[in-house]
Computed example of a mutant assay.
Amino acid sequence: MPRIFVQRVPSGHGDGRWTGAMDGTAPQRYGTTMIRFRTNLSLACLGLLALLSACAAPPDAITAAQSPVQSMEALPREMAGFRREGFVVDYARQVGNPGLGASARYVPMSGERVIATVYIYDRGVRRSPEGGSSPDVDAELRSTLGEVQALVQLGRYRSFAPELAMSMSGPGGGTDLRCRNFRLGLGDGVITGDSVCVTIQGGAFVKVRVSSFQRQEPTAAGLMAASLLSAVVQARAPVR
């Protein structure tokens, strides 16, 4: 059975303490954070674990040499309770940087006020190994959060507060993906629960960013981001 690990990240720091595994076993307690996490999100965790079990793909599953735009356009319009909205963005055309790949926006079919963006890119370097265990994944998460913090300094956002970090491990024991959750204060005073989840598949980063306006809980955003990213990975892996 795949396991969902959460990590306490003190404000202003990039690392913290492992608090347990969301796979039905009893986690360590870390104040009240873990208790509230289990109470409010246990059903969502069960659904995500089922999806992760179904979508574990071998590292060499992707064989077609598709561009990020082609790969994005080939994704289902509906995945993990989300529906694609608008067009695929080609950053090679838009900003002249092929390494930034492509992105597409997804919104919940339930109508909940959540925005999810799926990215496929490699920053000009083929990435390895596959999955979430690569040092490149940790480096990319740090880079992404650094970009968000830079926008706070520029006045685009009012505040940034790191919350729980998460990682998902599949049946084989390796890490499938990693997530960093955070709370973001927007310029108009609205607070959102946000998450960024990243893995490597087919030599490229596959990333999902979720911003939840309705439920301002970063861990809930993390579960949505992990579920959508797992669905993307499954959709990109061809049937053998």
Rank of each mutant, 00 (worst) to 15 (best):
R113W: 03
A237D: 09
P162L: 07
V198T: 14
R29T: 13
A21E: 12
R142G: 06
L48H: 09
D23K: 06
T32W: 09
V95S: 13
M79R: 04
Q94A: 14
V206F: 05
Q7V: 12
A226N: 06
E130I: 03
V148R: 01
G132E: 00
V210W: 07
M224N: 00
A165V: 04
M22D: 11
L46A: 15
Q94T: 14
R29Y: 11
M166A: 15
S11W: 02
Q153A: 14
L43A: 12
G187F: 04
T117D: 12
V206S: 07
E217G: 02
G173H: 05
L46N: 13
E112D: 15
E217Q: 05
V118Q: 00
G14L: 11
M166R: 04
P162C: 03
Y30G: 08
E73R: 15
Q28W: 09
G131E: 05
V210Y: 06
G193H: 02
A204K: 13
A235I: 05
P76F: 09
F205H: 03
P129M: 05
S110R: 07
P129E: 10
P68T: 07
I62H: 01
V9D: 01
R183Y: 02
R3E: 13
D90A: 09
R180D: 02
I62S: 03
P238F: 08
L46M: 14
I191N: 00
R105G: 05
Q28I: 08
R84S: 14
V233Y: 03
T32S: 13
Q153Y: 07
R3S: 14
G14T: 11
G222Q: 00
A104E: 08
E217R: 00
S53Y: 12
G193T: 02
T219A: 14
M79T: 02
V89F: 03
I35N: 04
A161E: 14
D138C: 04
R29L: 15
E73V: 14
V88R: 12
G173I: 08
Y121W: 10
V190T: 14
A57M: 04
V137G: 08
R183E: 08
T117S: 10
K207Y: 00
A74R: 15
A56S: 13
S128G: 04
R105C: 08
T199E: 01
R240M: 12
L177R: 06
V206Q: 12
L145K: 09
Q216A: 06
N181R: 04
R84L: 07
R183C: 00
G86H: 07
G14C: 04
C45V: 15
G132I: 01
M22A: 14
C197I: 11
P162S: 10
H13V: 15
I200S: 01
V210T: 10
R156G: 02
F182P: 02
R17F: 12
Y121M: 13
P76V: 10
A225I: 01
V206L: 14
S159Q: 02
A237C: 15
A220T: 01
G132W: 00
L100C: 11
